[in-house]
Structure formats: C-alpha cells, structure tokens
C-alpha cells in the first residue's frame, strides 16, 4: 500500500513545455539567421553575438545576486535578448558598445521591472534604443557583406568604397527625396532575400529569418496573428504609397524584406511579455506596429522604424489589454 500520497489541486497532468522550452525554440529559430550573419560578416558576427549573449547572461546573474533572488538564467530569456540585440546592431559596432547596450537592455529593460514577465518594453529594443541615442554614428555605419561583389554599380555609386554602404531603406529615403530613382533600390530585392545587402547583423537574410519563423509558427511557439498583422498593415500602407507614386516610393515587398521588418514581425513583436493577451488585442498591436513602421519609413527622417514602432506599441499594450477585455462565452452577465 501507499506510504506517501500526494495531494494537489487539479489538473494532475500537464503539457510538457515550459518557459525554457519556448525560449529554446526561439533560439533554434534564430540559428539560420545566425548562420547567414556569420557567412556575411564572419568574425564580426561571432564577436557581437558572443559579447551580447555573454553580457546579457552576466547582467541577469548579477541582478539576481544583488537582489538576492533565485537564479533565473535557466529560462534562457537572457540568451534570446542577447541574440536579438546582436542581430539588430550594425556588424561594425565595437564590442564595448555591444557590452553597454546588452547590459542596459537586461538591467534597465528587464531586471529593474522585476525580471522576466514584468518588463513593459522588449529588453533588446530598449538596449538598441539606448545605443542609437548614445552612439548614433556607430549605429548607422553599415558594413558590406564580405561575400558581396564590391564592383556592383549600386555600391560604387555610394562613393564610399567597399567598407560601408547605405542600406536599401536609406536608398528608399533618397528616392522619396527624389535624389535617386526607386529602380536602384528595387534592384536590391534579390539581394535582400538571401542577405547580400548592408544592414544590421541578423536582419539581412530574409530567407534565413523566414525559415526560423516557419519553425516557430509550426511549433505554435508564436502566435501567428501578430506577424500577419504587422506585415499585412505595413504591406497595405506601402502598396498604397507605391501605387500613388512608384517613382518616389519603393515597391511594398521590398519594404517587407528589408530593414528589421521580418525579424521585428516574427521575433520581436511576438515577445509574449510585451504583447497583448487577447487575439483582438494582438491584431490591434500588430496593425499598430506595421502602420508605425511605415509612418516612420515614409514620413520620418529615419530610414528604419521597427524598433521605435515596437517600443511605442509596447507602451500601449496595457491600454490595449484593457480595451480588448474578453467577453465570456456566455455573454456578460447582467448585474
């Protein structure tokens, strides 16, 4: 007979996943883009990813130590923050800047709020915003992928040689200001699919990012509503502009494959902590992110926009949650 009997509330069985396994899935999904980054940017990619992940992990460990809290590194969220931050900085960023950005991301972006689950903003985006504000020049110097043929006319046209080049979105900004033709930018579409373009470390190869995204969607790790809403709304806005004036505004598909659009839609906006809970809220949030990205890209002075769009919508998330309160299946009971 039983010597010891366990008692607990139901249910007595559970699905075998955990926060750790969800974060693990995200890391696996980021591996293809990591490979692409290493192929295009070689040792720089290695150093940046290593430094960012290392600093994030160390910062979280230190915070827990100071606050006398149990170690929370095993949820792997610090690793995810590190990889995403590394992916969203220029390859030529010096390692010390990466250390500062990563430490800021984890300490100010996450731990001061009380750790994972309590942060308002996506930590990686907080770190990146801090870097952009502090080291503007470093954050906008784009290295050419080592595999790129530097005699290409588009690059030669920059006049800055083989070391740096403008990103396709910087080109598109020029197109809006009528300095170059949109065709110059459109010529980079093929290159942006495999990643042979200038840009942040992990955002250049659309195919690598899409492979990872497909994994997350198939494993149901991320909710597909958010990427659909982000890409959908961005596409609609971009398409309208392009239809109005194809000479000034680049084609919408180019907007989807360049800059941080894909990594933002699939990996950053879907950060569970900083997104709304309800399906309706997710659509609102995603649509807001997509529309803000396009607003910044088309109207703003800044060629990018994913980071600020996500940070702004993160701030609105509690409001969205309050606005999109669920109605019970049986309707609201009359009081």
């Amino acid at each position: 007979m039983l010597s010891k009997i366990t008692v607990s509330p139901g249910p007595h069985i559970s699905e075998p996943h955990s926060t750790r396994s969800i974060m693990g899935d995200v890391i696996i999904a980021l591996v293809p883009a990591m490979f692409a980054a290493i192929i295009y940017f070689r040792i720089r990619a290695f150093v940046l990813i290593g430094v960012c992940v290392g600093t994030c992990v160390a910062s979280e460990w230190l915070c827990n130590l100071i606050r006398k809290k149990p170690n929370s590194l095993d949820d792997l969220s610090a690793v995810v923050t590190g990889i995403i931050l590394a992916f969203s900085v220029p390859p030529a960023l010096p390692w010390w800047a990466a250390v500062i950005g990563s430490a800021f991301a984890v300490i100010i972006g996450k731990m001061v709020f009380g750790g994972l689950g309590a942060n308002i903003f996506n930590p990686a985006m907080v770190g990146r915003a801090f870097l952009t504000a502090s080291f503007g020049m470093l954050m906008t110097t784009w290295t050419v992928p080592v595999t790129l043929d530097t005699t290409m006319p588009e690059i030669a046209a920059t006049g800055r040689g083989a070391i740096t080049q403008a990103t396709p979105l910087a080109w598109s900004k020029q197109a809006i200001k009528k300095k170059v033709d949109t065709k110059v930018v459109a010529a980079q579409l093929d290159a942006s699919l495999i990643g042979q373009i200038g840009g942040c470390l992990g955002e250049t190869s659309s195919i690598a990012l899409l492979i990872g995204a497909l994994y997350l969607v198939l494993k149901r790790t991320i909710n597909v509503n958010i990427p659909l809403a982000v890409l959908g709304s961005a596409f609609v806005v971009a398409a309208m502009c392009h239809l109005i004036n194809p000479n000034a505004y680049i084609p919408p598909w180019l907007h989807l494959t360049t800059g941080g659009m894909l990594i933002g839609a699939f990996f950053i906006a879907t950060d569970p902590v900083t997104m709304p809970l309800s399906t309706r809220g997710m659509w609102l949030f995603g649509t807001g992110v997509g529309a803000l990205i396009m607003l910044i890209r088309i109207v703003g002075e800044y060629p990018e926009g994913v980071m600020y769009a996500i940070l702004i919508m993160n701030a609105v998330t509690p409001l969205i949650d309050r606005f999109c309160k669920l109605t019970p299946a049986g309707g609201v009971p009359n009081a």
Partner: peptide
C-alpha cells in the same frame, strides 16, 4: 506534470486565453 519544472513568472504568452472554453 508538476514538480520537474518549478513555477516561473507568468510570461503573458496568452496560451491560457487561447484554450479557455469559456473565453
């Protein structure tokens, strides 16, 4: 089911909302 993984903070993933039969 219960003891291998300790309870960690809610990450607001929304899975409980997705599965709730009463919405």
């Amino acid at each position: 089911a219960k003891y291998e993984k300790r309870q960690t903070p809610c990450i607001r993933c929304g899975r409980c909302l997705d599965v709730c039969p009463e919405n």
